[in-house]
């Protein structure tokens, strides 16, 4: 079935990245530093949502900023530099899933002794587990919609797919989450 047949499919930004690299002067360096400082926390959190792993999140956030550094002149002049950064981040995350050579082993969640934070930690761990069960693209749609608050079109641009695909992926992801006890636990009987 053709979803959103009239909608343009966003192409990979590889041609842009493959161009000769920019040369960064001191003014550019300062601008890039300010850009990196301001975007870093949000990037790491977004990457964590995409990957579910702290180390990987920090690594691909670094990768995204390093690529932005290489193409800084173009990134800084772009209408939406954040969209460019998001796209690189999502691509880096997807490559991780495709090329995963080693299965991660997650340690036991930390023991929690305090009542309030225990509930909170348990809830977060449960959501993380629920997100990990989603396919990468569905997980990305959830995180981009509910964390970055992006529209269908913006998510489509980040994922390199059509808006129709975004909607269908979102629908499937939400259906999966709805069946998860994490979200069912609070429902009325």
């Amino acid at each position: 079935m053709l979803l959103g047949g009239v909608e343009p499919v966003v192409t990979e930004p590889r041609d842009e990245l493959a161009e000769a690299p920019d040369i960064i002067g001191s003014d550019d360096s300062e601008a890039f530093s300010a850009f990196a400082l301001s975007r870093w926390p949000g990037l790491v959190r977004l990457a964590f949502g995409l990957t579910g792993d702290r180390w990987t999140a920090e690594d691909i956030a670094q990768t995204a900023l390093a690529r932005a550094y290489v193409s800084w002149r173009r990134v800084s002049r772009a209408d939406d530099p954040d969209a460019y950064l998001r796209r690189i981040l999502v691509n880096a995350s997807n490559r991780r899933f495709r090329r995963r050579r080693v299965t991660e082993q997650h340690g036991d969640p930390p023991e929690v002794a305090v009542e309030g934070p225990a509930d909170l930690v348990g809830e977060r761990a449960a959501l993380l587990a629920a997100l990990r069960q989603l396919p990468p693209r569905q997980r990305a749609v959830i995180v981009l919609r509910f964390w970055d608050d992006l529209s269908d079109a913006q998510i489509a641009a980040a994922l390199g797919c059509s808006r129709g695909t975004v909607r269908s992926q979102l629908s499937r992801a939400l259906a999966t989450l709805r069946d998860n006890p994490v979200f069912g636990a609070g429902d009325e009987p």
Partner: peptide
């Protein structure tokens, strides 16, 4: 969903850039 995703990701404390 929005509240829980927000809570999960805000709990992540990124190190210094």
């Amino acid at each position: 969903v929005r509240r829980r995703v927000d809570d999960l990701l805000r709990a992540v404390e990124p190190p210094a850039v």
